[in-house]
Design a binder for these strands. Structure first.
Lengths: 342, 342
DNA sequence: GCATGAATTGTTATCGATACCATTCAATTA
DNA sequence: TAATTGAATGGTATCGATAACAATTCATGC
């Protein structure tokens, strides 16, 4: 832990002293509660201003047992998806004076546990997290004991918490399957990374595979548990995939960035898109539209998910509510990496 | 503020009761300080585990006057640049058990002020922020009174705080100027957004303009204070720019995303890149390499900036240090949106 | 068998604020 | 006029922990 600050900080006591009133009065003025005469009020405000008084939120929370911190646990901030969800969360919370504080789990269960414990120790007013943790027995235990509302983010298939906001990943997987089926291809592949860790991505993948299986199609899979979820990995995995399965007609990528990486490889080796191979991404990130490519992708309203989750939290704070959820609408954005449907 | 939690939480007192020791002993065991016999230690740990005790960090910090929170203020989390810097910060801080908490300023001075006040009220162990605020008189006042180390992020031209980590934006502007000059173009334009708010971007812009002016070249500028810093804006602004200045030979964009947007317009209207117009972006984000385009751009080590800043903070915590800085290395990444230099 | 210092454990005050209730005093009501 | 009311202010305990020191236990050696 950090060393104690050297400077002597201004407390409510100093303000009270300068203003010639009790600490209680200062406290009331600062919080705008109770009946305070205009005269006293001004005396206090002037004293506070003069001393540069800033209330100690730690002491406030400890004393009042109310917190202004909201804990958010996401897999990674460097991922556009989560940083945009986070941005949505933050934009709503800050209107109510709530402070977001963040932990990155990198999809690692131990890190998630550690984070949850740490974050709960700050007595947050609420907790937003991915669903994965809930299923972890130790995590479930902590969550059950929690003293604040908890909301599931980005995953909305099952909801064991007070609210959930996110798309149906199964629906997303099926949407992609339907799109490929509609255009009549049968040699279909999936390219992704960290599928064993990212349960949401896995759910999409499984739904895609299941729907194709219904039509007697076996999905070819290329997954790496160690590569980053970026363009370069899409490129490398596409290369590997085509080396083994040169006759593939369609590829669904874990996300848009990887799809673009894959496209760059396809272009390089002269494969026509969408004539030779069609490609669908996931997320609908702004990069989906690059210079000559408009990637066909599944658009997810990321910021809206964050906003809805945060608004639900505001509703829940201090109340007991029955589990509920918001399923984010998904839409297939048609680009030029898939052919027109017959 | 949130309502108080209904559940009765487990405190150190409960653990002490169950273990049959004093609260002080529990406190020492939990923190691993002082001399505690193995027997007592185990009794306490078992009791803590049994009750599911989680220490209250708020009370800890209030009592010990040490904090585990580090406040970070960035313009936007949805911007790759800052989310990657943040990711670097976080990766270092979490190794020391420090918790990052974040505020988004959206480049608005009032928001920045408000945020600074709020965040300082949590008695953070450290503060990481953009340089802009330091120059704001009211913000400067708050910063001078701060009881914790403060570090400037993403901006390193002048340093009024304890440390600064970021690139030299002036150098970046000059690098772009030199590149264009080397290839012999003279009708050069800059496309950006929010230049009045983003002082770092403005610095790059001014440096580019100044260097060109030395060669007698007048930089054509297209700036929008209201558009988002995304591909679509680059597209729109490029269209406007070319309508007024059809003879432009080179464009520097505020960031890579906008450059890609601009490229998509150029491609659409049949302008050859780099033969007709050459393009340079900024940041070196992963999207710079898209399907057929390898954008020439200035690469900035974003994650490293965050890491270096965080490491500096760890060093500074609890010490008085003289102002210092780390200037991030910049490199011009040659893509195929600029012609080879003669 | 007893002093002695080290190893353990406990007591009390405090961190900076708020909850809850008591008090003061002027204005209103019966 | 006395009683009631309500606005304005203040006193005390407390939130959950730690700092600083005090008190106790416990092996030792002589």
């Amino acid at each position: 832990m950090a060393e104690p600050p050297s400077k002597n900080v201004i407390t409510i006591r100093d303000v009270a002293g300068l203003a010639g009133v009790s600490q209680m009065t200062v406290s009331k003025v600062m919080r705008n509660v109770g009946n305070i005469s205009a005269t006293t009020r001004n005396k206090v405000l002037n004293a506070a201003r003069e001393l540069g008084y800033v209330p100690n939120s730690l002491a406030q929370s400890l004393s009042s047992r109310r917190s202004r911190l909201v804990a958010v646990i996401i897999p990674s901030m460097a991922d556009v998806v989560f940083s945009e969800v986070l941005s949505g969360v933050n934009s709503v919370l800050k209107t109510q004076g709530l402070q977001t504080f963040i932990g990155e789990s990198h999809f690692e269960p131990e890190t998630e546990m550690e984070l949850m414990r740490t974050m709960l120790s700050f007595q947050p007013a609420g907790l937003l997290l991915n669903g994965g943790m809930v299923r972890n027995p130790e995590g479930g235990e902590l969550l059950r004991k929690r003293a604040c509302p908890a909301i599931q983010l980005w995953d909305c298939e099952e909801n064991d918490l007070d609210f959930a906001a996110g798309p149906s990943h199964e629906e997303a997987g099926r949407m992609v399957a339907e799109r490929f089926l509609a255009q009549g291809v049968s040699r279909i592949a999936y390219i992704g990374t960290e599928l064993e860790k990212d349960l949401c991505a896995k759910r999409r993948y499984l739904a895609l595979r299941a729907r194709l299986a219904e039509e007697g199609i076996t999905l070819v899979t290329r997954n790496s548990e160690s590569m980053p979820r970026q363009a370069v990995s899409g490129r490398v995995l596409a290369e590997q995939l085509l080396a083994e399965h040169p006759d593939i007609q369609a590829i669904h990528f874990l996300n848009d960035a990887m799809a673009l990486g894959g496209l760059s490889y396809l272009h390089e080796v002269g494969v026509q898109v969408p004539e030779g191979v069609s490609v669908i991404g996931f997320n609908g990130t702004s990069i989906a539209n690059t210079v000559r490519t408009r990637l066909t992708t599944v658009d997810v309203p990321r910021t809206a998910i964050g906003e809805i989750a945060a608004r639900a939290l505001l509703d829940l704070v201090g109340r007991k509510a029955s589990p509920s959820f918001w399923r984010a609408p998904l839409s297939l954005v048609e680009g030029n990496t898939t052919p027109a449907i017959r």
